[in-house]
Structure formats: structure tokens, C-alpha cells
Simulated scan of single mutants.
Amino acid sequence: MSSLFGRNRSLSHKQSINGPRPFPGKKSTVSAQMRRSLVSIASNISEGSARATRKDFRQFVLIARGSNFELQTQLEIVKRVGMAEEKQLLPLERMTDDVSRMLAGLAQYLAAPANPQHATQTTELRD
């Protein structure tokens, strides 16, 4: 799970430094929404990991995945309206793809019954 947090932090850092900028002279709600999506991903993973059951944790992981899909949509909108060039967004799009795969894998793992032979932080949760 630490690599998932690391990937999300990298994505947050790249978006804040290299990410889309508002139209000159106009306020961009898209940039603000993208930041909220990034914060939501990490926040939901963190909150879910503190829950007492795997089922609850999985629900928060699925919410985080939804926020990641939201971010992917916002990147596509930014590209289509010309707020940023495709080459500028490509690293961000790749990272959101990585985060999506990681979240899907974690959700699938949490959906499976706990395996007592592989005790980890997440398997210590009650089913």
C-alpha cells in the first residue's frame, strides 16, 4: 500500500508543478477540481485503512478509485479544451493509469477472504 501512496504523492507533485494552468486572465475551476480529486484519493485510502473491517476498507478504496477516474476525466477535458498539450499531460495520464490498477488490485485483494497464512496490516482486519 505504501507504493500506492507514493504513486499518488508523485501524481500530486507533478500535477501541482507541471499540471494544467488556468486560461490567462480567467479562473480555472478545473485546476481546483483536479487538486480536490488528488486529495480525495489519498484521503479515502487513509481513512479506509483505519476502518475495522476489510469490507469498509474496500468501500473507501472504491471511492478513491472513483476520484481517480474523475481526475482522468478532468485531464481529458483539459486536453480537449486546449488548456494543456498532450505531451504535458502524458506523464499524469500514465500515473493515473498506474494508480487505477493499484486501487483495483487492492479492492480485489480486500474482497477476497482473509488468508491467515499471509498476515499483513490489511488481513488483520475483520471480514
Results as ranks from 00 to 15, higher is better:
Val78Phe: 10
Gln74Ser: 05
Ser67Met: 10
Glu86Val: 08
Met83Tyr: 07
Leu62Asp: 15
Thr53Tyr: 05
Tyr109His: 09
Thr120Pro: 11
Asn115Phe: 13
Arg54Cys: 08
Asp56Tyr: 12
Leu125Ile: 04
Lys87Asn: 13
Thr73Gln: 03
Ala111Pro: 01
Arg58His: 05
Gly105Gln: 04
Ser46Asn: 13
Gly105Val: 00
Gln88Pro: 02
Ala111Leu: 06
Gln121Ile: 02
Ala111Arg: 08
Phe69Asp: 13
Glu47Gln: 14
Ile63Tyr: 11
Arg54Asp: 12
Leu89Trp: 12
Gln88Lys: 06
Ala104Lys: 06
Leu110Pro: 03
Gly48Tyr: 00
Ser46Ala: 13
Ser100Glu: 10
Thr122Lys: 03
Gln108Ile: 00
Ile63Gln: 10
Phe69Leu: 08
Glu93Asp: 13
Asn115Gly: 10
Met95Gln: 14
Val61Trp: 10
Gln88Trp: 01
Ala112Trp: 02
Leu71Thr: 04
Leu90Ser: 09
Val61Ser: 05
Ala64Pro: 06
Asp127Cys: 02
Glu70Cys: 00
Gly48Met: 01
Gln72Glu: 07
Leu106Glu: 01
Glu93Gln: 10
Thr123Glu: 05
Gly66Lys: 09
Glu86Phe: 08
Asn115Tyr: 11
Ala111Gly: 12
Leu71Lys: 05
Val81Gly: 09
Met102Leu: 15
Met95Leu: 15
Ser49Tyr: 14
Pro116Thr: 11
Thr73Leu: 05
Met83Asn: 02
Pro91Met: 04
Leu75Glu: 14
Lys55Gln: 08
Ser46Glu: 13
Arg126Gln: 11
Val81Trp: 12
His118Asn: 11
Pro91Lys: 08
Ala119Cys: 00
Ala52Pro: 08
Gln121Asp: 03
Leu71Asn: 05
Pro91Ile: 01
Ala111His: 07
Pro91Tyr: 11
Pro91Gln: 08
Asp56Met: 12
Phe69Met: 08
Leu103Asn: 02
Leu75Ile: 15
His118Lys: 13
Val81His: 14
Ala50Asn: 14
Ala84Cys: 06
Glu76Val: 01
Asp97Pro: 03
Ala64Phe: 08
Pro113Arg: 09
Gly105Ser: 06
Val99Pro: 01
Glu76Ile: 00
Thr123Met: 00
Ala119Thr: 11
Asp127Gln: 11
Val61Leu: 09
Thr120Gly: 13
Thr123Trp: 07
Leu90Arg: 08
Leu125Gln: 15
Arg51Glu: 12
Lys87Val: 10
Glu124Pro: 02
Glu93Arg: 06
Asp97Ser: 07
Leu125Met: 14
Ser100Phe: 14
Pro113Ser: 13
Leu103Ser: 02
Ala84Tyr: 05
Arg51Ser: 10
Leu103Lys: 01
Ile77Lys: 01
Gly82Met: 10
Arg65Leu: 10
Arg80Lys: 12
Glu76Gln: 08
Gly82Ile: 08
Arg58Ile: 01
Tyr109Phe: 15
Thr73His: 04
Ser46Phe: 07
Arg94Val: 06
Leu103Asp: 04
Glu86Ser: 14
Asp98Ala: 01
Ala114Pro: 13
Phe69His: 10
Gln117Cys: 03
Arg101Thr: 02
Ala119Gln: 12
Ala112Ile: 00
Met102Ser: 15
Ala107Cys: 12
Ala84Asp: 04
Gly48Asp: 06
Lys79Cys: 05
Pro116Trp: 13
Ala64Asn: 09
Ser67Thr: 04
Asp56Pro: 09
Gln88Cys: 04
Lys55Asp: 08
Gly105Glu: 06
Gly82Asn: 07
Gln121Glu: 03
Ala50Asp: 11
Leu62Arg: 15
Asn68Gln: 07
Glu70His: 03
Leu62Asn: 15
